[in-house]
């Protein structure tokens, strides 16, 4: 009955994986993500980190790489490598959970604003613009400080402050879909609004949402790292950002304990870059007009 756009996400998961793999940037991104996912999911199982397993004496504090501690020890004499593995898990987990919140809120608001247009759109976009200009980090710090240091708070704070861009992008796409032929026609055929949104709007904005989501994960992981570095991280769930916080406040830099502050930093760089590369590559695939940077 209805003609589908060729841009819609009717292609399967493997189709996009193949396309990503064919793109040089996408391929490096996928490799980076695969490696970090492996570290985050598998490694902590075999090398769990026990925060209470502190060093016996002062001599075990901030020691360099050795046979017992491949990546040295921290300011309490604990193993840095094991911490690094757990940190990957927490960083990735917080980043993804925050992105889930951000994407649901952002695309939801975007679709509703774009679909219903008019007054609702005006109000929602006013709010969106407000959150778009308010600098995110100070607000996150304020909220983090008020609600306390725990992982749920961090996820909520990051998630609920990262949606405005998604909302804007999704809204403009929805708006242009809304003005195309099939919506009025589907309406005249008696479809309910929710049904139209589900069958005609969502499938078409999906590629855009996915591309944007991948980039949002990168931003959320960076936000988590920053908040944790500022000292708002969950002390019981050590992420890479928390590691960097403790390495900073314990004076690891001054003592030249590079094994403590280099790995988590490279970890963050690696995973954020992975998501960024895949995101850009995905954008290029779903929107050929952007292509040609290679």
């Amino acid at each position: 009955m209805m003609k589908r756009d060729r841009t819609s996400a009717n292609h399967g998961f493997w189709y996009f994986m193949g396309k990503l793999w064919a793109d040089r940037m996408g391929r490096w991104g996928l490799i980076a993500l695969a490696i970090t996912t492996f570290i985050a999911v598998i490694c902590p199982i075999f090398f769990p980190f026990d925060p209470s397993k502190v060093g016996a004496d002062a001599a075990s504090i901030l020691t360099g790489p050795s046979k017992t501690h491949l990546l040295g020890s921290d300011e309490l004499g604990r193993d840095v490598l094991r911490q690094f593995f757990t940190g990957a898990r927490i960083s990735l987990f917080v980043g993804i959970m925050a992105t889930v919140i951000s994407t649901i809120v952002g695309s939801g608001l975007g679709i509703f604003a774009g679909y219903y247009m008019g007054r609702l759109d005006g109000i929602l976009m006013r709010i969106t613009d407000f959150f778009l200009v308010v600098p995110a980090l100070p607000l996150m710090i304020a909220l983090g400080a008020i609600f306390g240091q725990n992982i749920t708070v961090i996820i909520m704070v990051i998630g609920f402050l990262s949606w405005p861009r998604t909302a804007r992008i999704v809204r403009s796409q929805t708006l242009s879909l809304r003005q195309r032929q099939f919506v009025p026609r589907a309406k005249s055929l008696g479809s309910s609004n929710l049904r139209i949104i589900r069958t005609h709007i969502v499938p078409h904005v999906m590629p855009l949402i996915v591309a944007n989501t991948i980039l949002v994960v990168a931003g959320c992981i960076l936000s988590e790292a920053t908040l944790s570095f500022i000292g708002l991280g969950d002390p019981d769930r050590i992420s890479w950002g928390t590691m960097l916080h403790f390495s900073f406040v314990s004076g690891a830099i001054g003592r030249g304990a590079w094994w403590y502050f280099l790995p988590p930093g490279f970890g963050i760089l690696f995973i954020v870059l992975g998501f960024t590369l895949v995101g850009h590559s995905f954008e290029k695939i779903t929107n050929p007009r952007l292509g040609g940077s290679e």
Binding site: A218, L222, L244, F248, G265, I268, V272, L273
Partner: peptide, 10 residues
Amino acid sequence: LILWSMPTFW
């Protein structure tokens, strides 16, 4: 892209 992916504080 690499620079952009580094946390500023790091």
